[in-house]
Design a binder for these strands. Structure first.
Length: 293
DNA sequence: CCGCGGGCCTGAGAGC
DNA sequence: TGCTCTCAGGCCCGCG
């Protein structure tokens, strides 16, 4: 599910409940997530305070006063909800709200702020992990991440360098977290449409022979930043599982130009092509074969 | 080293 | 209604 905009939406929702607050009690109800939670998971967190809540790619990183960093990943179906107190039922204040899958609340944080933070993940592809802060840069999961797409350092030159010499498709390259951290199936499709580039194009064609950026690389970078910023403003995309920490859905799915719109009309002004669905590396790709070259 | 396909899990929706 | 099949926002791993 969650790509960078959804994770960032979750981060912003968790921040007021968690930052500066202490873990009063941690419930590890179901430890067999993608990777099992350590036996001492709860004990290692309880009593510590959240110094800051950050994000790197699709990872949430809670910096704890204990010296650990709590890494959290939402996998495909993970979500967090914040309740002001543990007994209160889900506030049904949003008419677009849907209920989360029952019986999949795997981890619950009871914070000194009075809020409880519940991690729900039906498919259990998500996980949590504790890493000493001093080891974070050496952590294999962190080392496998390329640049932050919304960071100043991410530009055409950097992207072109990462794609130079790649025989794989542009779609697969942009989905690779080592090339750029945080994109997934939706936002790669959407960014390539905005950049008017075919997902089937070889990744290396956004660089020249010496690995320098060409005009296509500029377009891709601009499109990535634009689509991610737009999606964050809308609270991310809710196809099935994603919701904001209040339970409210994201709204960016109403702004998709190609994703999940097979057969629909291409929104590029003057194009009018029919959106096509193909399969690349086992995943659906949506694009307009008329204006995406 | 690189790229691809399988597998991990559960639930929703389509088709019969 | 109920069964079976396909597909889903991610990512690790083994194979060629």
């Amino acid at each position: 599910m969650p790509e960078l905009p959804e994770v960032e939406t979750v981060r912003r929702g968790l921040e007021p409940a968690m930052e500066g607050a202490r873990f009063v009690k941690v419930e590890a109800r179901r430890p067999d997530l993608r990777w099992p939670l350590p036996k001492d998971f709860a004990a290692r967190i309880e009593g510590s305070t959240v110094i800051g809540l950050g994000r790197r790619g699709k990872y949430l990183l809670a910096d704890l006063s204990s010296g650990d960093v709590l890494m959290m990943h939402l996998g495909m179906s993970g979500s967090f909800r914040v309740a002001r107190n543990a007994k209160a039922k889900t506030p049904g204040t949003f008419h677009h709200e849907r209920s989360v899958a029952p019986g999949h609340d795997h981890v619950v944080f009871h914070m000194s702020s009075g809020a409880s933070v519940t991690f729900n993940d039906p498919r259990r592809f998500g996980f949590m992990k504790l890493v000493p802060r001093s080891d974070l840069d050496r952590d294999p999961l962190m080392r496998a991440l390329g640049p932050e797409p919304l960071g100043n350092a991410f530009d055409a030159a950097l992207l072109a360098k990462a794609c130079a010499g790649k025989k794989t498709s542009l779609k697969a390259a942009l989905s690779d977290q080592k090339v750029v951290a945080g994109l997934g199936n939706i936002y790669v499709c959407e960014a390539l449409h905005r950049a008017r580039l075919s997902p089937r194009r070889r990744a290396s064609t956004i660089a020249n022979k010496s690995g320098r950026a060409n005009e296509r690389a500029e377009r891709v970078v601009e499109a990535i930043k634009a689509v991610l910023n737009d999606a964050i403003k809308q609270g991310g995309s809710s196809l099935r599982d994603h919701r904001q920490t209040t339970g409210e859905l994201g709204y960016f799915q109403h702004h998709f130009r190609v994703y999940d719109r097979e057969g629909g009309r291409c929104p590029t002004p003057g194009c009018g092509g029919a959106i096509k669905r193909i399969v690349q590396s086992g995943r659906s790709t949506f694009f307009c074969p008329v204006c995406q070259k």
